[in-house]
Amino acid sequence: MNALASEIVRDTSAVSAADLAKGGHFSGTIGDITTPDPRMVCREVNVWYGDKHAIKDVSLDIGNHQVVAMIGPSGCGKSTFLRCLNRMNDTIDGCRVRGSITLDGREIYDKGLDPVPLRAQVGMVFQKPNPFPKSIFENVAYGARIHGLTNSKAELDALVETSLRKAGLWNEVKDRLDQPGTGLSGGQQQRLCIARTIAVSPEVILMDEPCSALDPIATAIIEELIDELREHYSIAIVTHSMQQAARVSQRTAYFHLGDLVEVGETTQVFTNPRHKLTEDYITGRFG
């Protein structure tokens, strides 16, 4: 893996905005795409929606107990890349994925690999809070029920409580677990979705702009929660807010028109971006 990594880490100065603007094929990512303790390893991932080449040769590691933030202007492919990681793109007609993505060394796009258990291992939180129109309890318990994770009602109750506690929602909903999850506020709904995701004990959690529909207070609570969740899970988060990326992540990846332009330690990317496009984006010159 080290040999491969050294190949992919290229000299930085050679690629410029001008190269990108020409529309030529760009496959150089600036910065270290590897991480010492990777959980998921993606190499030269390409995605097409029909004829549209949405992701071009993206290689990136997702580290253990680490938050990777993916930023970039709209339509740059960061959400598409995120949805490759638990094969949610399978549900989209005409979507093709090439390249290699492994979870703990296992190729997730293998023919023999079943996406159903994969999605229990790689959970996902969506942009718009999407609780099931069922009770709060049923929302959290659903994953455990279908996977048969618990053997008794008591165990299930305990699991629901732990999950809601981890999601920081327990104290707010413990007296109304039988009420519909859709009756909660937006921020509470999103935390309920996080509780639902962690109830099936995933290894990696993917978050697709989890705060974009929330007010600043709810956003702050979720950001704090993400920081706590890092202790137990590996997290990949797509966000439009650069402040949020700076606050919650350890590593940041900047996407542009389907290319992964720059990856690095979050502090480095935000204080000392090495690519012109990254700099333009984080200084607010476009995007």
């Binding site: 638990n86 949610m88 549900t91 159903v116 258990p117 994969l118 999605r119 229990a120 959970g123 996902m124 939180v125 969506f126 718009k128 999407n130 609780p131 099931f132 129109p133 659903y142 994953g143 279908i146 996977h147 979705c193 639902r196 995701t197 109830a199 099936v200």
Partner: peptide
Amino acid sequence: VPPSIREAALGVGASPLQ
């Protein structure tokens, strides 16, 4: 039925039939 419901269920590992 909004697609977000399908995504939510698939996202926690429900099979398509479930």
